[in-house]
């Protein structure tokens, strides 16, 4: 083990010493040769002019040599630095690429390669710790969501049953009945939210393993049929342009939820008597419905991102869509065009 900086510094010092060491005999040799040559040529008697010439010559030679050696030194340093750097930083780039592929959702701990450099070893140890605690916090949170929604089902069932019983008591005034019915309504909503939270937690926890080939065209047709009574109820028309056969790889239950949520989203946010368009082509599924103003896209696909008093849904429908899409590497997007809300799914 040695310090990163010491390593490179040591090599640089070694190289510089070597170059300087080599230059001493070379300087000496060349200067003495020059001196000898001058003595012979001028018969020892040195005129003031000769002295001047000599010094000019020597200065010129020394400058040239220095430049030469400096160039050598520089080129060597650059080359060395590049080679050493590549070798020295390998563990760092290695760790970096491993972190880059890390996905918290898959909660797989990263194995870092062993290194004999202090800083990198310390970095890896700490990254290891950090990732470990992130994974455990994430797992705990997911389990918590799962367990919490699960534990809520029974008390919800109790409240529901008590309300159903209360409804049977006599005499019941209109006011009391309305109170019970209001409580019922709120309870139903809590139940739905809880159910969707459970679904999200279950997807998070990878409880939906099996992916099969699903005929999306058929699935859309049956979903549209399922919605038929509700569409009729609201006097809405559906324009469907479905290419066939389009298939996707995924879990049937999840893909059904995705299609169901996108469609019901379009229905729910349309006025009675409006029309909805569904278009399916290989790799693209689009739902369009008329709208006046674009939606705020910021929190559209986040859990409880769209809850408001005007949209009394669970606030989880689109989050579920996104979660399913993410799971299979599909992209779901929203844009507003020509007075239409368009939700598109690319797979």
């Amino acid at each position: 083990m040695s310090k990163l900086q010491n390593r490179s510094l040591k090599r640089f010092v070694q190289y510089a010493a070597l170059v300087l060491g080599c230059s001493i005999p070379v300087y000496y040799f060349i200067l003495s040769q020059l001196w000898q040559y001058e003595l012979n040529e001028h018969n020892i008697v040195l005129t003031a002019k000769a002295v001047r010439e000599d010094s000019f010559l020597i200065i010129g030679a020394v400058t040239g040599l220095t430049v030469l050696f400096f160039g050598l030194l520089l080129a060597g340093l650059v080359l060395l630095n590049r080679r050493l750097g590549r070798k020295l930083w390998t563990p760092f780039y290695d760790s970096l690429s491993r972190i880059r592929t890390f996905d918290l959702q898959q909660h797989k701990q990263i194995r870092f390669a062993d290194t004999d450099i202090d800083e990198f070893a310390e970095l890896n140890t700490n990254l290891d710790k950090l990732i470990g605690s992130a994974i455990s916090a994430y797992t705990q949170q997911k389990e918590f969501a799962d367990n919490a929604s699960h534990e809520l089902q029974t008390p919800l069932a109790i409240v529901q049953s008590k309300l159903d019983l209360l409804l049977q008591s006599r005499p019941l005034t209109q006011e009391q009945y309305d109170l019970i019915e209001d409580a019922h309504k709120a309870l139903t909503r809590v139940g739905r939210i809880n159910k969707n939270l459970l679904l999200l937690a279950r997807i998070d926890n990878n409880r939906y393993g099996e992916a099969t080939s699903i005929a999306l065209t058929t699935l859309l047709q049956t979903t549209l049929e399922d919605f038929e009574p509700f569409l009729k109820e609201r006097q809405m028309a559906v324009g469907a342009k479905l290419d066939e056969p389009v298939t996707v790889q995924g879990n049937r239950e999840l893909v059904t939820i995705l299609v169901h949520n996108l469609l019901s989203n379009a229905i729910r946010h349309s006025a009675a008597g409006a029309a909805i368009f569904v278009q399916l082509s290989p790799g693209l599924l689009e739902f369009r419905n008329a709208g006046r103003v674009p939606l705020h896209t910021g929190r559209l696909f986040q859990r409880f991102g769209t809850v408001s008093s005007e949209t009394p849904g669970t606030g989880l429908g689109l989050a579920l869509v996104k979660q399913v899409a993410d799971r299979y590497g599909w992209t779901v997007a929203y844009h507003f065009e020509n007075g239409q809300h368009i939700f598109s799914l690319r797979f």
Partner: peptide
């Protein structure tokens, strides 16, 4: 409404 219940308010 069965499974559809959660879609309509």
């Amino acid at each position: 409404s069965g499974d559809m219940a959660d879609m309509f308010d």
